[in-house]
């Protein structure tokens, strides 16, 4: 731990020097911020952090304040990671409501989406690695022919002559800790099927309702976002989420500079800090720019589909129209914008 910390500090020093050398080349906002503060780098950093500490909730900021907050972050992160980091503040696009559809018939459980997501969204890489997507491995249909002679009671002597069997049922989705991180040689495994879960971007999100400071809210395009700078770390949302989609930064996130994705969004994949909650945002840094999510792009079998639910011609709308679609835990009445389907 201590050696890593040392390494990070060294990295920061180099980056700070580079930053002031290349200040002119960096984006206009950063340059303006730097120009207005002709002071020692340490002092600049302290001032940035200080201003950041007392900034308002992102949703309540004026456009001017948003710009300042973004400039502060760009400056700080560019210094920290030794490269030009952009923090985007693009709002939701008008007349867009994002929806996601996942073909569970196609998913082969390779978990490439899990890792692509970590890479794209700047999660902590080690101690611990934070993963937003969970792929649950289940035995085919929860029923296996091999178990057909098993049943209740387990001990045949207690059955009083009644034939025991037919109970090939397994509790669906039950796993022991760590089993979600399975890493087989080849996929798909025999007699297994897979069920990826991530944030469902609910229409009635329980996490938003329980948040005492409204740091998490639904943006107009349906994405449930978090202002990491406003989160107080009470984890009410973690407890309330039916899909276990939220992750907490128990310690300082470990994000090596060389692995850091510099194209970030304020409400999305910008680096997080200790003690705040994070989760999937449908890669809004990409999707608000008309791109697909990282998990969709990496999927080798095309199981993942994404698009605008308000556009009847979008792929996702057509899937909802024509395929056999269901939602996970529909009984919770949270109306997810994440759908599962089979052909």
């Amino acid at each position: 731990m201590s050696t890593e910390e040392k390494k990070e500090t060294e990295g920061t020093d180099i980056s700070r020097r580079q930053f002031f050398k290349e200040a002119g080349a960096i984006s206009a906002a950063v340059a303006a911020a730097a120009a207005s503060s002709v002071i020692a780098p340490e002092e600049a950093e302290a001032r940035t952090t200080f201003a950041e500490m007392f900034q308002k909730n992102y949703r309540l900021m004026t456009d001017e304040e948003k710009k300042e907050a973004i400039a502060r972050l760009e400056q700080r992160h560019s210094e920290e990671y030794g490269k030009k980091v952009t923090v985007d503040g693009s709002p939701a696009i008008k007349d867009v409501l994002f929806g996601y559809a996942l073909n569970i018939q196609k998913c082969i459980g390779c978990r490439r989406c899990v890792h692509a997501c970590v890479k794209e969204n700047n999660q902590s890489r080690h101690d611990p690695e934070i993963q937003w997507i969970r792929v649950i491995k289940m035995e085919k249909g929860n029923f296996t022919v091999d178990d057909m002679n098993k049943g209740y009671p387990a001990n045949a002597n207690e059955s009083f002559g009644i034939q025991v069997g037919g109970n090939a049922y397994k509790n669906s989705g039950v796993a022991l800790e760590g089993q979600h991180y399975y890493q087989p040689e080849t996929v798909p495994e025999k007699d297994a099927f897979y069920f990826p879960i991530q944030c469902h971007q609910c229409e009635k999100p329980p996490c938003v309702k329980v948040c005492p400071v409204r740091t998490t809210y639904r943006d107009p395009d349906g994405i449930v976002v978090i202002d990491y700078n406003w989160c107080i770390g009470c984890r009410m949302c973690v407890a309330a989420c039916p899909y276990w989609a939220r992750r907490f930064n128990w310690g300082d996130p470990n994000l090596p500079a060389e692995e850091m994705n510099p194209n970030t969004h304020y409400l999305g994949n910008r680096p997080r800090m200790r003690g705040v909650v994070e989760k999937c945002t449908f890669c809004l840094q990409r999707t608000r720019k008309g791109r697909y999510t990282a998990c969709l792009e990496v999927c080798p079998v095309g199981a993942r589909k994404f698009g605008n639910l308000l556009d009847p011609e979008s792929e996702v709308s057509k899937i909802l129209d024509r395929k056999k679609v269901f939602r996970l835990k529909a009984d919770m009445n949270t109306y997810p914008k994440f759908f599962y389907f089979i052909d």
Binding site: N57, L60, K209, V210, P212, V213, M236, R274, G275
Partner: peptide
């Protein structure tokens, strides 16, 4: 319990946001 006890002031109405009556907390 809090991840960010330094940000408790975010709960104070007017200078922060107090999500009452929605949030049970």
């Amino acid at each position: 319990h809090m991840g960010r006890p330094d940000r408790l002031w975010h709960l104070i109405p007017i200078i922060g946001i107090f999500n009452w009556p929605n949030s049970m907390l």
